[in-house]
Simulated scan of single mutants.
Amino acid sequence: MRHVLGAVRRAFQPWNDPAARPFIEFRGITKRFGDFTAVDDQTLTIYEREFFALLGPSGCGKTTLLRMLAGFEQPSDGSILLEGRDLSAVPPHRRPVNMMFQSYALFPHMSVENNIAFGLKQDRLPNAEIRERVAEMLRLVKLEGFAKRRPDQLSGGQRQRVALARALAKRPKVLLLDEPLAALDRKLREETQFELINLQETLGLTFVIVTHDQEEAMTVADRIAVMNQGRIVQIATPAEIYEAPRTRYVADFIGSVNIFGGTVEGRAEGAVTLAGEDGMRLRVANADAGQEAGRSAWVAVRPEKIRIAHEPPAERERNAVEGEVWDIAYLGDMSIYNVRLASGKIVRASLLNAARSVERPITWEDRVWLSWADDAGVVLAD
């Protein structure tokens, strides 16, 4: 996964404003299916015009949260509020939300324009208004010339746009997206991610997306809730999730990471020092307080923050270790080096290929030194 810091494109941070009121609130939400607890007593706030991502592996509870907001599932405990209104007694078709499904669920016998118009006809809108909205949606998703085609005459990306247009045609206050890009190939998926960002900003709507794709969440979202086993383990901006994960689970789930175990020796001048594996001395600057001497701890370091060289660094007494190049992956824009330490632990370092050359000064079975700055690592809570 490339180092993507996502939606740092705008100064939109209502969650840091004490006066801002949440648009969507999950209060103590629990959802049980028999003996299985899919969502376990979770509280979450989402703000108006936010692009919010629920991220996690299959079975973590993210889609269940989305379906409860849509009204397709009822909470076992807790409440869901939209603009301060409790939605528990509001049926799905009366909620000001619309959902775009992973399968798109287009009607195969209907044309593009009739698919988009379906919900509007169900709401018995005047024909003139339906035609106007359909034309507006076709312009919005850039499918003006495809109105008469059926879904089987479209590409996967075009079908995805039709489903998006149909979901937006009813002008919901909140658009729910359940793995909306999963069926697209990688290149088209990347292009569509930016189209979603631009569309969300143009319309000024609140988007809530469910995905298991870390890079997708990092690209589109203002904030991400990382979930595991029915619980939210961290909510933060993409940059904070990547650069300052709180736990080993979050660090390992988001992108590629090296995690070193160690024992805290002490704390001085805002930095924590640890005795680490393979004889390493670790020093982490700007670490949170509360790291007691003698306590076991974990340090996360991203591959792109690790320097790799034949010669040892000048300050080899900390954040430095020697190993052997075990494997190399050339990815065009960067090279990935897997370095085997004396203990057998594999440490990954990445190096940008800035020069136009296929020659690599470091190759297989070379003895190399890995090192990183004091502020490159993060001490994890557990």
Rank of each mutant, 00 (worst) to 15 (best):
H3M: 08
G6C: 02
A11E: 14
N16V: 03
N16M: 03
N16L: 04
A20W: 14
D35R: 04
T37C: 14
T37F: 07
A38S: 15
L44T: 08
T64A: 10
G71Q: 07
S76G: 11
D77I: 01
S79H: 05
L82G: 03
L82A: 07
G84Y: 14
R85Y: 01
D86R: 08
D86I: 13
S88H: 12
V90G: 09
P92I: 02
Q102R: 13
Y104A: 10
V112P: 00
D123G: 05
A128S: 11
A135T: 10
R139N: 08
R139E: 07
Q153R: 08
S155E: 05
A165V: 05
R166I: 01
A167D: 00
A167E: 02
K170S: 00
L176K: 13
A183Y: 02
K187I: 00
L188N: 04
R189H: 04
E191R: 14
G204M: 15
T206A: 06
V208R: 04
I209K: 06
D213R: 03
T219Y: 14
N228M: 15
R231G: 06
A236V: 09
P238C: 10
P238T: 07
P238Q: 04
A239E: 13
I241K: 15
E243T: 06
E243N: 03
R246W: 03
T247Y: 10
Y249I: 13
V250Y: 05
V250L: 14
G255R: 04
I259T: 06
E269R: 11
A275H: 12
D278K: 01
R283Q: 12
G290P: 06
E292A: 14
A293M: 00
R295I: 02
K305W: 14
E311D: 07
G323R: 00
V325S: 12
L331Q: 09
R340G: 02
R348E: 08
R356K: 13
R356W: 12
R360K: 10
W364D: 15
E365N: 11
W372E: 10
W372R: 11
V379A: 08
